[in-house]
Nucleic acid binder design. Structure first.
Length: 525
DNA sequence: CGGATTTGACCCGCGC
DNA sequence: GCGCGGGTCAAATCCG
């Protein structure tokens, strides 16, 4: 534990040694030495959002909430080596030198110096990556905002409102939760986003989901466009009774849901062209998953299966059944090279309310498709996303690292959710980072749900211990939010680690154990 | 019995 | 024009 955060005058103590020594994703600990001698450690995980807090009360053991009597830990999830630490280590070496044999010490010193130099180079490299990622993130954020705005303009009424609501959740949560990376060079923003982080309502998503369910119910299972929802989100051809999908038209009755035929009879030609184009855009998601399908929050119905050339595993075809006229389809196939990798290809765009979990996927795939089609990517070959958002939103059980690449033959994006420990991200062809989606957004989905789930669970079960824990977490959150000094100190400390270009820095994605969440029951998987 | 899945047939675009 | 492969249809079958 070294004093790297502005001395021991009630400030923060940054412990980087374990990370430095082992190179594993152990949390960075920030210790606040209070004037009365009590110590407070904060562990923050910027990526997994496994934030925890405890008052100085008896130790409580809860999964993912390491609450101790005197420790509050914040895990940054970053693999960092600061210049301060480097010098500190060198100081330590010098001190050691004076006590040991000079001959041995000399060679050891040389070796360690060499190691320090290598680490310094690594730091520089990581720092450059971080800067690049930050730039890409900002770029993507603007594009995502534009896409969301377009959606909002296009979809009036209820649907539009829902899209807007959920989209804003994304945008609002994003910057705040990305504080360490987004606010690198701005004191004020760093503090602001840090605060935003702590005050993010834990139940936003639950509220959104509830809103969705309420809306669906209130509308009498209509979406306002003459589309009829059924309990299982599917309409059948009454004549055949075989469960085949049909589009329902008020004027025409049921008719086959043809590929590429859009349901609305009043769509402008421009809109139709756009939708047909969107229909052609494909977004593939590669995820390491043993299950037959990833839980993306939508309801799907299998309508075909085929053996594809060059792959021993069959390709299954699914259609979205959440709305009768939804043209969204997806293909699911195992990777020929690695059967544990599931490749899910989405095509089309939902025109109906989606639960938040599904919205996470839909928004990103849609945004990716839009960007691809609008030419926001300089070239298909140069497309690269850090879709950790999807990694968490779609497949919470997966590792976090993910890549995006684009096919050259047709508008398509591939999101690779297989946690690769390497960095930079592997791509199909030579690419440069183009934009980044903060995984923190998706993690906010998981985390918020989890936290509010704790509260809900406590409330439902009447478990006082759990309830008191939830209350303690809430109170602590409020406390840390209300304390500008602590927030400021935390922000400054974090900034000194992450943002200090001169202090060295870098990023490394942290893997965090996340429970599998099946928000939607999929009969097909 | 109703709804989902299976699976062979069919359609269509593309390359040669 | 023909063959191939991808994608979809729809009757048969399965399942709860």
């Amino acid at each position: 534990m070294e004093d790297c955060g502005g001395g021991n005058r009630g400030g923060l103590i940054l412990d980087l040694t374990s990370r430095f020594a082992t190179g594993v994703e152990s949390p960075i600990s920030l210790s606040s030495a209070a004037g009365d001698g009590r110590r407070m450690v904060v562990e923050m995980d910027f990526f997994s959002q496994e934030k925890s807090w405890a008052r100085p009360e008896p130790e409580v053991n809860v999964p993912n909430l390491s609450i101790k009597e005197e420790d509050l830990t914040i895990n940054t999830g970053l693999h960092l080596v600061s210049a301060t630490e480097l010098s500190t280590v060198e100081d330590g070496i010098s001190a050691t030198m004076s006590e040991q044999n000079k001959e041995e010490g000399k060679s050891e010193m040389v070796a360690m110096k060499a190691r320090m130099e290598r680490l310094g180079e690594d730091n520089q490299r990581l720092r450059n990556i971080l800067i690049q990622l930050n730039r890409s993130y900002n770029s993507l954020k603007m594009q995502l905002l534009a896409a969301m705005q377009q959606d909002n303009n296009r979809n009036g009424g209820t649907l539009g409102h829902e899209v807007t609501t959920v989209a804003r959740q994304f945008i609002d949560l994003g910057p705040g939760l990305m504080a360490p990376a987004a606010g690198i060079n701005e004191d004020s923003s760093t503090e602001r986003v840090s605060r935003r982080w702590f005050v993010s309502p834990a139940s936003e998503l639950e509220a959104a989901h509830h809103d969705y369910l309420l809306k669906k119910k209130c509308c009498g299972d209509h979406d306002g466009n003459g589309i009829v929802y059924m309990d299982r989100g599917i309409r059948c051809d009454g004549r055949s009774g075989q469960g085949m999908l049909r589009d329902f038209r008020p004027d025409e009755g049921w008719r086959p849901n043809q590929m590429g035929m859009l349901s609305s009879t009043s769509k402008s030609s421009e809109q139709q062209v756009r939708e047909v184009t969107m229909r052609k855009a494909r977004v593939s998601v590669r995820a390491r998953c043993e299950a037959p399908m990833i839980a993306d929050g939508c309801q799907w119905r299998k309508y075909g299966q085929k053996m594809a050339k060059g792959n021993p595993f069959p390709r299954a075809y699914f259609r979205c059944t959440m709305a009768a006229d939804c043209t969204v389809r997806k293909q699911v196939q195992r990777c020929a090279e690695d059967r544990t990798v599931l490749i899910t290809t989405y095509e089309g765009k939902h025109h109906h309310p989606l639960p938040p979990v599904a919205m996470a996927m839909a928004s990103i795939t849609s945004a990716a498709a839009s960007m691809l089609l609008s030419g926001s990517m300089p070239s298909p070959d140069a497309a690269l996303i850090n879709p950790n958002l999807l990694a968490r939103a779609v497949l919470p059980c997966s590792s976090t690292l993910a890549t995006v690449s684009a096919s050259t033959s047709f508008p398509a994006v591939t999101l690779d959710l297989n946690g690769s420990p390497t960095f930079p991200l592997p791509c199909h062809k030579t690419q440069s980072p183009e934009f980044q989606i903060p995984q923190i957004l998706a993690q906010s989905l998981c985390n918020n749900s989890r936290f509010s789930g704790l509260q809900m669970l406590a409330g439902a079960a009447g478990d006082q211990k759990l309830q008191s824990l939830a209350d303690a977490v809430s109170a602590a959150t409020a406390e840390i939010t209300a304390d500008p000094n602590l927030t400021t100190v935390l922000a400054a400390a974090i900034k000194s680690i992450i943002g200090g270009v001169g202090d060295g820095g870098g990023a490394r994605q942290a893997e965090s154990p996340v429970a599998v969440s099946n928000d939607t029951e999929l009969r097909s998987g």
